[in-house]
């Protein structure tokens, strides 16, 4: 058993106000980013992680942004979930993302937690990765200091997660922002989830994006959480749907293929059996809702 009142760990804390300084501080064995701390602090308390240095990034003004850049929206590492869910641009362009953010924790948690933090914590059951995968988001990873200056590159979110609580990030790197391409016309997205109680991590969650061409599915992306070691896309269903004309049983039929794309386990929140049963239901519902939002009948 572990105490939740005491952090029995020696670590140092840095609070830079420039990204450059943050990256410098992170380039050190045992250094970790501290943003809202809603996952990290809990993990430290129960000895899941033992950082030797925390680099606090919410005090870095250049990371605290939600801005339109051309045809995409970019959300900085210091933007809190509550800022994002109330941002007009986000609300009007990405209602399904707002729905996913709304179910995370309570108001206090969303006032502290960040979207980038939700990704970097890499929980297989996190609520934002499925919708961000469905929306084809990218993460902007930066690192490298010294003479070379800050180096950054963009990576599709699908390549970011490598396992439960694991990402591609290396020591000295951090995610600067999440970039969301603006949804095209005749498209829609939806988010669904089930949890033990309303204030809980998901037993299973699911998001879908559809671009419609008349009465046919032109483009589709589906992702699920809590059904595999990482949030996953569903290539089998997507392949089965692309180019197909919407018919009454189409989404249900396609959703039943979900078994091919998931590998759920038993854990404290639910069972593999239940997750398998429910996955196709959530996929079907998310597809139906996304289709409706894309203007389809």
């Amino acid at each position: 058993m572990s105490s939740t009142r005491v952090i029995s760990l020696d670590f140092e804390c840095r609070s830079p106000n420039k990204l450059e300084d943050a990256l410098e501080a992170l380039n050190w064995d045992g250094a970790q980013v501290l943003a809202g701390g809603t996952d990290l602090v809990n993990n430290i308390k129960i000895n899941l992680t033992r950082p030797r240095r925390l680099v606090y990034v919410l005090g870095i003004p250049e990371l605290d942004f939600i801005r339109v850049e051309g045809r995409s929206i970019s959300i900085g590492a210091a933007a809190r979930l509550s800022d994002i869910e109330h941002n007009r641009q986000v609300v009007s362009r990405f209602p399904a993302l707002v729905e996913a953010i709304n179910v995370i924790g309570g108001t206090q948690i969303r006032n502290m937690a960040t979207l980038v933090g939700n990704l970097c914590n890499a929980s297989p059951g996190a609520d934002t990765p499925p919708i961000l995968l469905a929306l084809d988001a990218e993460v902007e990873i930066c690192g490298g200091i010294g003479g070379a200056g800050i180096q950054s590159n963009r990576l599709p979110l699908g390549g970011f997660f490598t396992g439960p609580k694991k990402t591609v990030l290396k020591q000295g790197q951090m995610v600067r922002s999440v970039v969301l391409p603006s949804p095209p016309e005749h498209s829609g997205a939806a988010f669904r989830r089930l949890a033990r109680v309303s204030l809980d991590i998901a037993k299973i969650n699911c998001a879908a994006f559809i671009k419609r061409d008349g009465d046919a599915v032109q483009e589709v992306r589906i992702a699920l959480g809590s059904v595999a070691p990482t949030p996953v896309r569903t290539p089998t269903i997507e392949k089965a749907l692309e180019g197909r004309k919407k018919s009454d049983g189409l989404f249900q039929e396609a959703a039943e293929l979900v078994e091919e794309d998931i590998a759920p386990i038993d854990d404290v929140r639910s069972t593999a059996e239940y997750r398998r049963q429910i996955a196709s239901l959530l996929v079907r519902e998310a597809l139906q809702e996304a289709w409706k939002r894309a203007g389809g009948k």
């Binding site: 078994e259 038993d266 593999a272």
Partner: peptide, 26 residues
């Protein structure tokens, strides 16, 4: 799980996927 067992007994097709491993909670 109970719905599924009932459907199996009554010879109806249960909704969803075939039954797999039976978990701790289940």
């Amino acid at each position: 799980h109970a719905f599924r067992e009932r459907s199996a007994r009554e010879g109806k097709k249960a909704p969803g996927q075939p039954q797999v491993s039976f978990g701790r909670i289940g």
